[in-house]
Design a binder for these strands. Structure first.
Lengths: 202, 202
DNA sequence: GAGGTAACCAAGCAAGCGCTAGTGTGAACG
DNA sequence: CGTTCACACTAGCGCTTGCTTGGTTACCTC
């Protein structure tokens, strides 16, 4: 995609860093912790990354890039109906959040730790992702599936989805797809359904 | 409420600390920064607080306590109708988030930095607040205003509301009350309305 | 087999961290 | 007038932080 994350070694290191950043937060993660997790000494870390900030940028780039990829793939491989596409986006978002979890969570919660340059450089990736959402929501609005202000609706939906990382238990009875479907059902103006949203599971 | 935050001096210091914690994050806020903001030297800080952790606990207690107070007041002073109560809760939540903003934001985003004891001690406050939400949502469900799983609906709504701190611009055209009303309209099964949610503002 | 290169290590520096110890202050109180 | 107490100060200790330096190893290439 661009300059960063060339070598496979660096990619693996980035993955490990993401895990630690989620566990401890960026600020509390020391270069020594990162090095130990990677099986090297702290000094060797700076052979792969210019400084700690660059590790964060690499992680966030990876996370956002993946989210964008998964969302695009989901939209491309589903039938062209507003409701289906809405559901597909919600499912893709949660899939990203719970499989490739770490990098995306870092992108959500540590963005402000980026240096201004890195932030500026990466924001176009995030904007591209949000544009996908706005488009899908626009279609749903036009089709009368949902109502409201396009800006507000997309913010609310993304907020509800992003916040799931704070309470969702992957080992619980609900699958990510359950969550996505329930959310879509919640915001849709009822017409056909009513049965499926009430008796979903146990 | 309990042992903490007795003196008015300490209350003022807590307010200043909240502001810095929001601006910089707990980890990046040093005791020297806190002291300077308070107009004293870093050593003097420990006359008021046992350690840095205790400052965080004080801030979070203040924030959660206030949120609970505002929500209770809002519920007490509104008519006893499920839709009105739902709207009142949403408005109260956003009012908390944008007037007493700092302390509540810290409570949301720095909770995991609390020591286990402090977390255990404060979690009952948060639980009490969430219980208010669940009760209001239960009523709305029973009245057929909304549908879905009570647990999921309350999580989604709280997520959407909490996430507003990431994008909402208080100087923009929308008031917090606008946001609250729009959110409630979004999740409600339509029956009466339709007009007001479409043409809210410019 | 000489030269280049990617990956790593040992050692440590300068800065900054949370926090403590010991010492004034001035107002309040008996 | 003497004691107390809340509040603040100075000075700095012991430790951790991100990062640098100079050197070593293993492999690839011509």
């Amino acid at each position: 995609m661009n300059v960063m994350n060339a070598s496979p070694r660096r990619k693996e290191l980035t993955r490990l860093a993401a895990q630690l950043f989620v566990q401890e937060g960026f600020d509390r993660t020391t270069v020594r912790m990162l090095a130990q997790e990677m099986g090297i000494k702290s000094g060797s870390l700076f052979h792969h990354f210019k400084d700690k900030q660059e590790i964060l940028a690499a992680v966030i780039e990876e996370g956002t890039h993946n989210a964008l990829l998964i969302a695009r793939r989901a939209l491309d491989s589903c039938e062209d109906h507003p409701e289906v596409r809405l559901r597909a986006m919600a499912r893709a978002h949660l899939e990203t959040l719970f499989t490739d979890r770490n990098a995306h969570v870092v992108a959500l919660f540590e963005w402000r730790r980026l240096t201004p340059d890195a932030s500026a450089h990466l924001s176009h990736l995030r904007d591209a992702y949000e544009a996908l959402w706005v488009a899908v929501i626009d279609d749903a609005l036009a089709a009368g599936l949902i109502h409201g202000d396009r800006f507000l609706v997309s913010r609310f939906v993304l907020g509800a989805l992003n916040w799931t990382v704070r309470w969702y238990d992957p080992d619980g009875p609900r699958t990510p797809d359950d969550l996505a479907d329930e959310l879509v059902a919640m915001i849709m103006a009822r017409q056909d359904e009513q049965s499926d949203s009430l008796a979903l599971r146990d």
